[in-house]
Design a protein around this nucleic acid. Sequence first.
DNA 1: ATGGCTTGAGTGTCAAGA
Length: 259
Amino acid sequence: MKIATWNVNSLAVRLPHLLDWLATAAPDVVCLQETKLEDARFPLREIRDAGYPHVLASGQKTYNGVALLARTPITDAVAGIPAFSDDQKRLVGATVGGVRVVGCYVPNGQAVGSEAFAYKLRWLEALRIWLARELARNPRLVVVGDFNVAPEPRDVHDPVLWEGHILFSPAEREAFSRLLGIGLQDAFRLFDQPDQTFSWWDYRMNAFRRNRGLRIDHILVSQALAPGVRACGIERSLRALERPSDHAPVVAEIDAHAQ
DNA sequence: ATGGCTTGAGTGTCAAGA
């Protein structure tokens, strides 16, 4: 199973890029973030025609919005973290081919110490508690998305500059680490990777051309799935297109039946 | 420290992203 996550920063704007990429990369399951579309405006027909008839969308106007696209049927769909009251559309989950897939768009947090930052930490804690129960119910769990956290110094182009700032503060890294603590592994780090590999680059200051980025989009796999992960990488080329998203997709190839 | 881009809203210019 090839699973991918991509923060498209407006599905309305990025639909041509998405359709081109689905045709070439051909993932089995795709989680999208920042669709910025109400469900009534979701481009279901185009996505279906691209080979993804099974769609779970949870969107809203202007901000946030997530979706899960699959080639094969999905069951046990959820939208939002159960038992966590939240007006913002940030999570979808479903079972596909015996694998529990969760796609999330973790709050950005704006600035360390702000109300938005407190919401981000609350959100991550609620996610952790719920995922621990999901994992108990289905050991074959993969959690993907835009986590808005760079886990380690090597995930930041200039860790000294970013230390303590939003996306790379101790509290956020600790929250991410606690998430892994329930029994998840960062699929990207199961392999040797080139130095300075990132998933997000600011639109400003020629950040992409200078490779001044962060790795904040992740694919996390449970212990049951980890031995079956065959590859994981970031599709940097999409960030180089005309009118790109500021994020590049992350893709993992998982043999869900490996022992 | 600020602004530097991009998007959606809506037609002014601002909020939010990260």
